[in-house]
Amino acid sequence: MSSRNIFIQIILLIVFLLVQIILFKNLVVFNVAFCFIYVSFLLMLPFDIDRLFLMLIGFSTGFMVDIFYDTLGIHAASCVLIMYLRPMYFKLVAPQGGYDVRIIPSIRDMGFIWYAVFTLIFVFIHHLTIFFLEAGGGKMFFYTLLKVFFSTLFSSFVIILVQYIFYPPRR
């Protein structure tokens, strides 16, 4: 990755964190649907980053969110988990000949269906770990599951919407 790309990624991270903390922290629909839009930043990191580095990025992003949510360790844990699983998923669905070096996992480069499936799976894993860690295990199991379900729909919807606005699909 060139230093210009690194700079762009850092700006993106700051923007996503600010939007998360200032806007989406105060926006909870019917007490069950949360939106963690910052996950979009992690999902959109380029294909060719080393796995160790991915997990470190995940850890520090989650840690920063944790500081503002007063939930030290919870977001960090689930971000590390999805960053660990992401390369495995990419390997599983890789096209013949591997990924082009110039493309990133976005709606523009991968198309709507590919991106929607990818987002739903990873946002679900992320939210599942967050809410169950926060509930401290299986207490109020079905209520937590309800939160996970609606939050996954809400977050995925917002993430895909943002993709449509900033990375519209190529004709």
Partner: peptide, 13 residues
């Protein structure tokens, strides 16, 4: 590294 980071998170929690 994955296990180490998760243990660190668990300790923080």
């Amino acid at each position: 590294i994955f296990v180490l980071l998760e243990v660190l998170c668990g300790w923080l929690i």
